[in-house]
Nucleic acid binder design. Structure first.
Length: 975
RNA sequence: GGGCUCAUAGCUCAGUUGGUUAGAGCACGCGCUUGAUAAGCGCGGGGUCGAUGGUUCAAGUCCAUCUGGGCCCA
């Protein structure tokens, strides 16, 4: 009997599985998309539509896709999918950053391990292969997280055409007269014998020998400055780099600081007054010295103490950066070995002296003492492991000690720049480099103005102007890049290495450089044709054959090709020219959007800005969006957060959760700040871990789709749809909520606030649908006659809501929404090659919005909450299980506003409350809501719909309620 | 050390121009249901809004300092 009745109920039915099994299903969907060529299909659909160009910042091609890299690409994918559904043509050309030291270093290490030496061209080929291998890996990994892109049009910075464009970017700098050659201290990696970019430096603690060194003041000098001369007098400096003492050319003091001449008994020293106690402490002098004289730093200018062991003076110079925070207030100055020292050296016309060779060892220049020549200035990896300081430091210490100049020494731990790859400390070393001046005034051309500007402007000012034309999201990004652009020194663009794009400069036999924009452009043409190795394989005469040389140049056969390469930031910074300007893959310049991590303010956003401003007089982007970094559950950077057994690669997370859960995670948090991710191994079993909570939210969405699909099993939209005007109240309310959801989600997507989409959809599914709408609907859908208008009305609404919700979530849940879509469309509407990603963004018909209805139901839902609360004590007492076993009495005085509301929706209330009966009464003094048991009210429970009614009707299926009897009749007819 | 930035329940987010007992979802606890069932429903506990000081009749919301985190720089 019961079984019989159950067969007359329209229970939900679908093949859309409750269990996601994403790890298995997603790769199948990727295969499906590739078979469809979904990317091409989307482009075809939007051909001719206004373009929205998100220009991809190229990831570096030397390892697996990290979860942070996945974040970046997924955010781009979400944007592209959304914009495309909104009707834009969204060409997305992915890029790869191929050149650079890390790859060269790995290849070099490999060659060393194999004990091989190769030519530059061979080395470059190996680096190219290395890069290519990782491009293949990363492509797979990006596809696995669901990134949809024009992989066939991808750009690689190592492609000859791209390299030619990098060279042309360089030509633009040369053309503007911004490129100059200068000796300047640069970060120098000793193991790699190369200058390093700022981005290639990392700061780590380093234990240095701190030394206090006496620079003796000759008696004559002392007299000139009216300093006591009856005892030895010296100026004491403090340094943590003893190896730079041989390069000392001056001592800097702050003109405004008070200095003292202190009598130590046997001798006198000059130091800053405030630092005297610390100097005495370092020298272990306990007796208080006599202060013979006080004077400001300015009074010491040009005093000429002697170098402690080299026959020259170390004149006192003035510098504002000298502080009394540490040291002696007298700063050892070596213009060839420090940025500030260099500037001071220029100011006082000191030589930019650097007696250290490329390998970091002292050279024999006639000044360096013979016992120092050939000693290494800074520590090797082995030295660091053994915790010993460098040979040069030791030797200098010995020399100072022998000459009696060493006042004190100590170990000093401080943050010191290290080469990011070799992990060894770097040195500052003055070498010849190419620079781009950012402060030369040149005539620029501003975008939209055909004539060159008549007032010369510096690239820096031009860049700052361009920044203001761009929309920065979040707005703080503008401050950040402005700060970076304002404070950046001239751009050192040359590197001494192999795996990069060569600087097209020539040198005569006296090493004089020759640089010309026309020549560079001509060579770029040849490189575009022959590849960059042409520069390394061909002779200068071949390279310059057919190229018109400037009159001042020697003949081609008297020239040699330079071996410097360009800073890799010029590579990626040229992508807008190499890709967008050429319309690669249907793109266009400028980009509508750049979207990268916030570290790129000083990186790609900036390098792209400089190249674009130099060449085109404007930024290459209209809008720049930045995201934060992935951090651990404790908010600390992922490398320092918890224990990771597995590397935090995109693949490892996907293997555990599936791509859609990872995508949902990225969308669930405000990405302009840091994103927290639980530790893959340690948090896996914690139900409250961030990823598990997101996985739970994923299940909510999936189940929502499943409920909707399963209840549409017998619904044919063309046949069964109910027009809005004839729809049931509750269904119209659901559509009102859906319209609001569309509005709010669209606004959130437009503001790039995906976490709001997540929150909105989450609450819509759990509160609006699951707890209210879907729960109430079960009765209609299951028990009403198949074709009852109310059932069809609800199905129509569900159909609409499914379409809407699936589309709203499609940019994020790219896999699951498309999977659900295939189940929805398979029966009636499925067209071969369909995909939710080919559909248009949902638009709510105006009629869906009904403020009066919304207000009514909102009020009734409050009553509903009170009703469920009132039922709860009965449930706790074991008197009631299902709410359908309850009869509710609502007490409201005639004339009270709620009374009118109750009356208005009287018939609908049992359904809304999911109870068997609702009575409206006015019993003075009674509670607003009274609950009684249906059984005690003489009602009979219908075995089919479980509602209690006054009387049951006999049918061939047994006794049921009148409504079910009617439904069964229809059921019989259908059968 | 400097620039930018963040800090609201266990987690992720809301909290309009300062104004009643600070909200939501999830998680957690307890029940119900067994016709969304490796599902669904209800009820409940949980926050000195990072800390301190200040402005104000009134501060999560404004100001200052500090603490902790992140990115970038030194």
């Amino acid at each position: 009997m019961a079984t019989d009745l159950k067969n007359t109920i329209q229970l939900p039915k679908t093949d859309f599985a409750m269990r996601a099994n994403l790890v298995k299903r997603e790769p199948e969907r990727i295969a499906h998309w590739e078979k469809l060529d979904l990317y091409a299909a989307i482009q075809k659909k939007r051909a001719g539509a206004p373009a929205f160009v998100l220009h991809d910042g190229p990831p570096f091609t030397n390892g697996d896709v990290h979860i942070g890299t996945a974040l970046n690409k997924v955010l781009k994918d979400i944007v592209n999918r959304y914009k495309s559904m909104r009707g834009f043509r969204t060409p997305f050309v992915p890029g790869w950053d191929c050149h650079g030291l890390p790859i060269e270093q790995k290849v070099t290490a490999q060659l060393r391990a194999e004990n091989k030496t190769v030519s530059t061209a061979e080395m470059r080929a190996l680096c190219g292969e290395f890069s290519e291998k990782w491009i293949a890996h990363q492509t797979k990994q990006f596809k696995r997280v669901g990134v949809l892109a024009d992989w066939a049009s991808e750009y690689k910075t190592k492609a000859p055409a791209f390299e030619a464009d990098i060279i042309r970017t360089f030509a633009a700098f040369v053309e503007k007269g911004l490129v100059y050659r200068s000796k300047k201290p640069v970060y120098w990696s000793i193991p790699f014998e190369t200058a390093l970019a700022e981005a290639e430096i990392e700061y780590k603690d380093h234990v240095s020998p701190a030394i206090w060194v006496k620079f003796p003041v000759p008696t004559g000098e002392a007299h000139k400055y009216d300093l006591p001369a009856d005892k030895p007098l010296s100026v004491v400096i403090w340094t943590t780099t003893p190896w730079t003492i041989p390069a000392n050319l001056a001592i800097a003091v702050n003109p405004d600081v008070e200095y003292v001449v202190a009598d130590l008994g046997e001798e006198r020293i000059v130091v800053a007054e405030l630092l005297l106690p610390s100097v005495l402490a370092a020298a272990r002098i306990e007796t208080a010295p006599v202060i013979d004289k006080k004077l400001t730093g300015a009074a010491l200018e040009k005093l000429a103490p002697r170098h402690p062991f080299i026959d020259r003076t170390a004149p006192v110079v003035l510098a504002d950066y000298v502080t009394t925070e540490s040291g002696t207030g007298c700063v050892h100055t070596a213009p060839g070995h420090g940025a500030e020292d260099y500037l001071t050296g220029l100011k006082y016309s000191l030589p930019i002296y650097c007696p250290v060779a490329d390998d970091g060892k002292y050279i024999d220049d006639g000044q360096i003492p013979a016992d120092l020549v050939g000693l290494a200035t800074l520590e090797t990896v082995e030295d660091l492991a053994a915790k010993r300081t460098s040979p040069a430091n030791i030797a200098v210490l010995k020399k100072l000690d022998a000459s009696g100049a060493l006042l004190a020494k100590a170990k000093y731990t401080h943050s010191y720049p290290h080469c990011w790859r070799s992990k060894t400390p770097i040195i500052f070393r003055a070498v010849d480099q190419w620079f781009v001046s950012l402060d030369n005034k040149v005539l620029g051309i501003r975008l939209g103005e055909e004539e060159p500007m008549t007032t010369p402007i510096t690239p820096r000012k031009e860049a700052l102007w361009s920044i203001q034309q761009v929309a920065w999201v979040p707005p703080s990004g503008e401050k950040r890049i402005t700060g970076a652009v304002e404070s950046r020194p001239d751009w050192c663009i040359s590197r001494q290495r192999s795996w990069g794009v060569p600087i097209i400069a020539f040198y005569d036999d006296k090493k004089n450089p020759y640089l010309d924009a026309g020549v560079i452009r001509a060579v770029a043409e040849k490189i575009e044709k022959h590849g960059t190795n042409y520069w390394y394989d061909a002779t200068p005469a071949q390279i310059l054959e057919g190229v018109a040389l400037p009159a001042t140049w020697p003949a081609a056969d008297a020239l040699a090709c330079g071996r410097d390469t360009l800073d890799v930031w010029i590579d990626s910074g040229s992508s807008h020219a190499a890709v967008l300007k050429r319309g690669q893959g249907g793109t266009q310049w400028p980009a509508d959007l750049y979207l990268e991590g916030s570290d790129q303010h000083r990186g790609w956003f900036q390098s792209s800005l400089w190249t674009s401003v130099a060449a085109y007089g404007a930024a290459p982007y209209k809008r720049v969006l930045t995201h934060g970094f992935i951090v651990g559950a404790d908010g600390k950077k992922i490398s320092k957060s918890g224990q990771y057994e597995k590397p935090p690669t995109s693949d490892n997370y996907i293997a555990q959760y599936g791509a859609d859960v990872i995508r949902l995670l990225f969308a669930s948090q405000n990405f302009t700040e840091d994103l927290r991710v639980s530790n893959l191994d340690t948090d896996l079993k914690n139900p409250a871990s961030i990823l598990n909570v997101v996985a739970e939210a994923y299940r909510l969405f999936r189940n929502t789709f499943r409920y909707q699909l399963s209840n549409l099993f017998d619904y044919d939209h063309a046949r069964d749809a109910v027009p809005y005007s004839k729809m049931d109240t509750l269904d119209r309310w659901a559509l009102h909520q859906t319209a609001a959801l569309i509005r709010e989600c669209t606004a959130a997507y437009d503001a790039y606030e995906f976490h709001r989409v997540y929150q909105l959809c989450n609450q819509f599914c759990s509160v609006t649908l699951s707890a209210v709408y879907h729960d109430i609907l079960k009765d209609r859908l299951y028990t009403h006659a198949t074709n009852s208008p109310q059932r069809r009305s609800s199905q129509t609404a569900i159909h609409e809501i499914f379409h809407t919700l699936a589309k709203l979530l499609a940019p994020v849940l790219a896999f699951t929404t498309d999977e659900a879509w295939s189940f929805a469309t398979a029966k009636n509407e499925y067209i071969d090659g369909d995909s939710i990603h080919l559909r248009d963004w949902p638009v709510a018909p105006a009629e869906w919005t009904d403020a009066t209805l919304e207000a009514d139901i909102a009020a009734l839902l409050k009553t509903r909450a009170a009703v469920t609360e009132a039922i709860e004590p009965l449930r706790a007492a074991g008197k009631i299980g299902k709410s359908l076993d309850a009869v509710i009495t609502l007490n409201a005085a005639a004339g009270a506003p709620e009374r009118a509301l109750y009356e208005k929706h009287r018939d609908f209330l049992p359904e809304l409350f999911i109870v068997s009966q609702v009575e409206i009464a006015d019993a003075p003094g009674a509670p607003a809501i009274e609950v009684s048991l249906a059984s005690e009210r003489g009602l009979h429970r219908c075995p089919r719909c479980w509602r209690s009614v006054p009387a049951l009707h006999a049918t061939p299926h047994g006794d049921v309620c009148p409504r079910c009897a009617e439904a069964l009749q229809a059921f019989q007819v259908d059968k």
